[in-house]
Every structure is written in C-alpha cells, then in structure tokens.
Design a protein around this nucleic acid. Structure first.
Lengths: 144, 144
DNA sequence: GGTGAAATATGTAATTG
DNA sequence: CAATTACATATTTCACC
C-alpha cells in the first residue's frame, strides 16, 4: 500500500462510482494501471465492497437506536446467527464492558421498535439509546 | 418509490459499482430508464452517496471502539464542529440517555487511542467499549 | 506501468405506448 | 409521462511493448 493506493482509496470512499478513466485522471496514471491497483486492493481485502449509502429517514426508517444487550450467558445475541440477518439490524459489534454487544437498528415506527426490543429481551437485558440525530453518519478512513 | 426503485436500491447497496447496463439486465428495464430512476433517487436524497467500504484492520486501523461521552453542558462534543473532522471519528450519533453522544472511532495503536480519550475528556466524561469483533459491519437497508 | 484497438457501456434525442 | 430504440461518445479490457 503506497501513496497512490491511499489516494485511490480516498477517491473510491468519496465516490465509489468513479470510472477508472476518471480515477486515472485524478491520480495521473493510465486507466489499466488504476484498474489493476483497484483489483489488487479488492483481492487483498482492503476494499471490502462498494455500497450505495441510503438516507434512513427518506427510505422510510426514521427511527434509529443504539441498543446494548447484556446477554444471559449461553443465550447470547452473538451465538445466534439469525440476529445478524434481522433486517432492523444495520450494524452489530461485540464489545468489552457491561454489555456483550451493541446493535445499530433502524425501524419505520415505534411499534416495530417495541417488538424488536421484546425479541432482543429473549437474549439478555437490552439498554436503548435512541438516536436523536447523526452529525457523522459515515467518514472516509485515512490509512496511517 | 415503487418496487422497481426498491430493487435498484438493493442492487446498488450490494454493489455500488454495477453499470447501468448490468442493472438494466437485473431489473429487466432499459439502461436509460434505469439511469433516470437512479438519478431521481439521488436527487430525492434517498441515495446519499456511494462509498468503498474499507476493512479497518487491513487498512492499518486494528483498534476500534464505541465511546459514549457525557458532556459538560456548554463544552459539548456536539457543539464543536471540529470533532466531526477528527480522522479517528468514523461515526457520531447524538443519543438519549446518560450520554449525549456516541462515537465510533478507529486508531492504528493504543497510544493513539489513549491520546484520543484525553482529547474527548476535555468535552465530558468518556466511557469506552472496545470493539472485540464486528459480526455485522454493515447491512443493506430494506425500505418498508 | 504505458499504448492502442476491440468490446462494452453511457448519454442524448427522437419515438412509441 | 415514463420506457424504448438508435446512435454518438466514453470507458473498459485485452494484447503487446
């Protein structure tokens, strides 16, 4: 990973739909050279995918929350692969501290959130922080 | 937003670099029709951008954490726009509950994390949950 | 990593249902 | 009025230097 790779990473994080041609202009390299470097970053797993970022409110999911779950030993959220497939679960982290995991969830309405908390309650003690606003929904990673 | 828009959203969330041509094949529509629908989703703000997803560990940022900050009234993280520009801060949420905000942060090494916590300490009482693993780093949004 | 030619994809305008 | 077709332009992908 040299400086050129880092520039390509920055460009593709800012706009994943840039053409190899446009990228080649921005980093002053030929298009095939850029395409090969990007393919290498993908093959090495540095680039994990390319995703359209959807505005949750405009997509009909105005209610978001961070939910910590303090699981009951064996019956843990992290031990049930089904939880990761629930459509409400946008992110799931295993963490240190009182809780064993934190989930970022999004739902269309409160009734659905209540139902989700009930479901999570089967795995452990959920503790909810409703998200009031998201000053930084996402930020490009700058490799050191 | 009809069923076709939702299918396009799903495809572009799974792979933001799909060509209009390929998208048109997948949803059985002509390429110009697809391009116009995608442009409308962008103009309406439903699609907020397209981002390459970078593997933090492979990009040299193996240490990640969720940090809650219980701010000191006036000197709040949310009132200082500079915090949102710190490269360590990947996500920032304003939340209900004891803390006023939660930050997802990533750093190359512990020394840097210690320094970050010190900086955050200037705004309020930070409470850290180190991230042990990320079973779900990201998940496509399914509009209701 | 660069160059050039063939295959593919994109954007625009006219046209249809 | 949104989708399709047709065509000009731009991009991607090879083979080769």
């Amino acid at each position: 990973m040299d400086a050129l790779d880092r520039r390509l990473l920055a460009e593709l994080q800012a706009d994943a739909r840039l053409s190899y041609n446009e990228l080649s202009r921005r980093v002053s390299l030929s298009a095939p050279a850029v395409a090969e470097r990007v393919r290498r970053l993908e093959a090495d797993g540095v680039i994990d995918g390319y995703h359209a970022h959807v505005d949750l409110t405009r997509a009909g999911l105005p209610i978001t929350a961070l939910v910590q779950v303090q699981c009951y030993g064996t019956r843990c959220v992290l031990r049930d692969p089904a939880v990761a497939t629930w459509p409400e679960v946008l992110q799931l982290y295993r963490v240190t501290g009182g809780a064993c995991c934190v989930l970022l969830v999004a739902v269309p309405e409160m009734a659905r959130f209540e139902e989700l908390i009930d479901r999570l309650g089967g795995y452990g003690q959920p503790s909810t922080s409703m998200i009031l606003s998201t000053p930084v929904p996402w930020r490009p990673v700058t490799a050191p």
